[in-house]
């Protein structure tokens, strides 16, 4: 469902070009759980942004559901972001002036969903992440783990095909991190394609497929994590 063909992306940083991606090719199937790992500057975030239609490749093609969208009109890409892609960020990016429910409603607001339906679906999404009782709280009244769960509810409320998570546990303590990961993995088991960028080996190890990146290239792509996760789970319990 996601396919990158020889994608390159070069930034200008302080006047000198930085090659974030060098002819990277990748294919991710529906329902997969993929971890993108690598040192900082290896291009994993750039990869995620291109897959999430926030950034465009300089060269190469990006196909979503078989359609080339890397060079598509902004309108098409916005529609894709609205309906097919959910984002979870390291810093949550909740709007502080809105309640948890208000934040979850936000994607529906811009997608033109009616007010009553927005309310209902936001409530259901909060319920699914176990935060229904906190619906009227503002982000500053929530713990880090709760904030990330609100962000997850916001990411999945439009029922996307892919959930892209950029260091989703980077700002959380161990227990909250585990909660958050279990939540999105449960969604993955129900068919949501999951791509997680992380440099935490424990988080990466939970994925079925781990892609290692370095200097803008894919250096290793293995179906390895399954067993490890079972080990981890056993270790925790």
């Amino acid at each position: 469902m996601i396919e990158l063909r020889a994608v390159s992306r070069t930034y200008e940083v302080g006047g000198s070009p930085v090659r974030a991606l060098r002819s990277a090719s990748l294919r991710i199937g529906r329902g997969e759980h993929v971890a993108l790992v690598g040192p900082s500057g290896s291009g994993k975030s750039t990869m995620l942004h291109i897959v999430g239609c926030l950034d465009r490749p300089d060269e190469g093609e990006f196909l979503f559901d078989g359609h080339e969208v890397g060079a598509a009109a902004e309108e098409v890409r916005a529609e894709l972001r609205a309906r097919k892609i959910g984002f979870v960020f390291q810093f949550f990016h909740l709007l502080p002036r809105l309640t948890a429910a208000g934040n979850v409603e936000l994607p529906m607001l811009f997608a033109g969903v009616g007010r009553a339906e927005r309310r209902e679906r936001a409530h259901a999404a909060l319920e699914a992440v176990g935060l229904a009782p906190r619906a009227t709280h503002r982000p500053d009244q929530l713990s880090g783990g709760e904030r990330q769960r609100v962000a997850i509810a916001r990411a999945v409320v439009m029922d996307p095909a892919v959930l892209l998570a950029d260091e989703p546990t980077g700002n959380l303590d161990r227990a909250s991190a585990l909660e958050v990961m279990e939540l999105i993995e449960a969604m993955n088991r129900r068919g949501l394609t999951l791509v997680v960028v992380t440099h935490d080996p424990a988080i990466a190890g939970r994925a079925r497929r781990v892609i290692h990146m370095a200097d803008g290239e894919l250096v290793d792509d293995r179906e390895e994590g399954r067993g490890k996760r079972e080990e981890n789970d056993r270790g925790v319990s």
Partner: peptide
């Protein structure tokens, strides 16, 4: 900036 970036990430169009 972060709010605007987020709005774009969740699919808000430029004209919105």
């Amino acid at each position: 900036r972060a709010e605007i970036g987020l709005l774009k990430a969740i699919g808000a169009r430029d004209r919105q």
